[in-house]
Design a protein around this nucleic acid. Structure first.
Lengths: 156, 156
DNA sequence: GTCAAATAGTTCGATGTCGAAATATTACCC
DNA sequence: GGGTAATATTTCGACATCGAACTATTTGAC
């Protein structure tokens, strides 16, 4: 996009890398969306169901941490999942501030219905990269994603 | 998220790569958001202003293609930019279906205010990767992301 | 020339997303 | 034990995002 930007060599390289990274991620996600690999679920709903499926019942706050979204957002996503009968809320008896979110039978079945196809689609989409390319990409993304405030490593 | 998923070696590797890619992108974007590098603009608004700044006035449809968002979405983003006096719509005299979007003076100044800081922040964030690592990451992302375009042009 | 198809943009309804404020409950301190 | 701080969740307002339906305009076929 900033094809007409002019800057230092480092700036140009950084922008180029950033654009490719964000476009790649967007393209991959929209390709998966087009394939309709998760049925009538939204990606957010899928992420919540998957977390509950693999990790078991959790509080609303734990779900929001697992899927890296805000608490207020989780309220809505869980509302919609509950409306559709895929999860249920249960108030904790000991600490009545806490809501524990459970998968229903329908929720389990729904996830089991779509998960294999979703993974197959992912494998297919990423098959343009060889195994070692995937590992390299993963390692670089991890390095870039892990960066924290105190990471003052001035590598060039 | 699917930390407890068990599958074939290829499936595990694919999922691992996918998770790292999406988390890396999310982390990078939210770190930039935290830094407040684009002032009171939203990222969508920034993208539209940047496209207009570097490429000149465009129709609403062209803007939506440049920033890879839907037309209906562009209507809202441009509405808000127009409300804030950063762009203006001009109806084409020849073809009255067409709306051309122009940066205003205020819009240009706004972008010039935030762009250098935004680029500096990007350069700093990506500095955890060496120049050659950035190029490798860019190349892998391009390879993975390009597939969508090829597929679309084939199908369409 | 007229009417149907194509095109550009907007409107609408649903969902997602955030941060700030509100609510409810529990924990803590003296 | 009563008041305040901390914690968990929801509510609210704003913006983003999509696809489908709609409006206005132009183009094309006959």
């Amino acid at each position: 996009m900033p094809t007409h930007f002019t800057g230092s060599r480092a700036e140009m390289r950084t922008l180029d890398t950033f654009i490719k990274l964000t476009r790649c991620t967007n393209a991959l996600l929209s390709r998966l969306a087009e394939r309709n690999t998760i049925g009538d679920l939204t990606y957010s709903q899928f992420a919540v169901l998957e977390a509950l499926y693999h990790l078991g019942p959790m509080t609303a706050g734990e779900v929001s941490q697992k899927v890296l979204k805000s608490g207020s957002n989780m309220t809505l996503v869980i509302d919609n999942l509950e409306r559709d009968g895929l999860v249920r809320r249960e108030r904790d008896a000991q600490d009545r501030r806490v809501i524990r979110v459970h998968l229903t039978e329908a929720g389990s079945h729904k996830l089991e219905d779509v998960l294999p196809g979703h993974i197959a689609a992912l494998v297919e989409e990423l098959s343009v990269l060889s195994a070692s390319e995937q590992e390299t990409l993963g390692a670089l993304c991890k390095k870039l994603g892990m960066r924290t405030i105190q990471d003052r490593s001035k590598t060039k």
